[in-house]
């Protein structure tokens, strides 16, 4: 009962956040240099008929509030994000849609690798808190955490692609390269460095988070009980501390997803990886605001979803939340 109310509250929060993003986007749309009208008119590739249709759809002939706002929210909810300035007046949704796959590939794999490695490093350093291994590990995590993603990427290219020649420097595939299995291998060779960059950039964050919650758990009564039981260290860490320490990490990691994605976008620029990040930079150079807003909206919704997912996961993992006890 209480658990359901908790989840409903989270869901409500997520919806409120998305509505606020829409409002923000709407305001930005009005703030844009020149009215949306003129922004459209500046776009030579949009036909007069399409422009008139858009005017009606967005209610540009009506007052800004509330008619235009309602029209905007309605259109957006229907998936109508407007037209790209740069991409020949194509619909924003279709331009963005093409770029999601490549981004998902490197961000997704990078995230998985970083979680695994970050958890391992964080658990190791947290368990040894205050000792030499912890100091070194934590400093390493802090350094990784403090590196701009794009710089890390540039370093990796210089070392592994240019100097050692092990991997390609940029792009998603060799032009005119093979298909099939070999094509997949080619893709992976191109993806390796971007993935490594994202993973390395993230490891520090996860390690730092987990280290502090492991170190905190060490003071808990149940750890004393586990020790008194004569369990081995490894068992105490895995069986007793991690199930507890992972919980806040899940939440904080989800909270930080937005930041992570922002950083990951710059990795694509470094590697000329044809995903949302590269698209964003191109859009920025040609002041293609509809694309920028579309990317912002898409990423916002993804991040809100990630947080909702984390909440659900949390309530699965923590019996106290599952049964509606206090958190």
């Amino acid at each position: 009962m209480k658990a359901r109310r908790w989840l409903l509250g989270r869901l409500g929060g997520a919806i409120a956040t998305i509505l606020m993003v829409l409002l923000l986007n709407f305001v930005l749309f009005r703030l844009m240099p020149g009215s949306p009208d003129r922004a459209l008119a500046r776009n030579p590739r949009v036909s007069a008929a399409a422009m008139e249709a858009a005017r009606v759809r967005w209610g540009l002939d009506k007052p800004i509030f509330p008619d235009q706002l309602i029209a905007y929210v309605g259109a957006t909810l229907k998936g109508d994000f407007g037209y790209s300035v740069k991409y020949g007046g194509r619909e924003v949704t279709s331009v963005i849609g093409e770029k999601i796959g490549p981004t998902l590939l490197i961000v997704g794999l990078g995230e998985i690798i970083a979680l695994a490695a970050g958890i391992a490093l964080g658990a190791w350093t947290g368990w040894r808190r205050g000792r030499f291994g912890d100091r070194v590990g934590t400093l390493g995590a802090l350094i990784l955490y403090s590196m701009p993603y794009f710089w890390l990427g540039m370093l990796l290219i210089t070392l592994f692609a240019t100097t050692l020649g092990w991997l390609p420097t940029s792009g998603i595939s060799t032009p005119g390269g093979p298909g099939g299995i070999e094509g997949a291998i080619d893709l992976l060779r191109h993806a390796a460095l971007p993935i490594a960059t994202i993973a390395l950039g993230l490891i520090g964050q996860y390690a730092i988070l987990l280290r502090s919650s492991v170190a905190e758990s060490l003071r808990e009564g149940y750890v004393l009980t586990a020790r008194a039981k004569g369990l081995r260290d490894e068992r105490i860490l895995r069986g007793h501390i991690l199930p507890n320490a992972l919980l806040p990490t899940v939440t904080l990691a989800a909270l930080n997803a937005g930041y992570v994605i922002g950083g990951a976008l710059t990795v694509e620029i470094v590697f000329s990886w044809p995903g949302l990040g590269l698209l964003t930079q191109e859009a920025l150079q040609s002041r293609d605001y509809p694309i920028l807003q579309g990317v912002f909206l898409l990423l916002s919704v993804s991040v809100v979803m990630a947080n909702l997912l984390a909440d659900l996961l949390y309530s699965r993992l923590d019996p106290r939340v599952r049964h509606g006890a206090a958190r």
Binding site: G221, T225, A228, G239, L247, D318, R320
Partner: peptide, 23 residues
């Protein structure tokens, strides 16, 4: 490692903290 719990066991003060909340 051999005497703990097999020979000498403890009931700690405050079972809410002495038991692991997620097990």
């Amino acid at each position: 490692r051999r005497t703990r719990w097999r020979e000498i066991a403890v009931v700690f003060q405050g079972s809410l903290v002495a038991l692991n909340p997620v097990i």
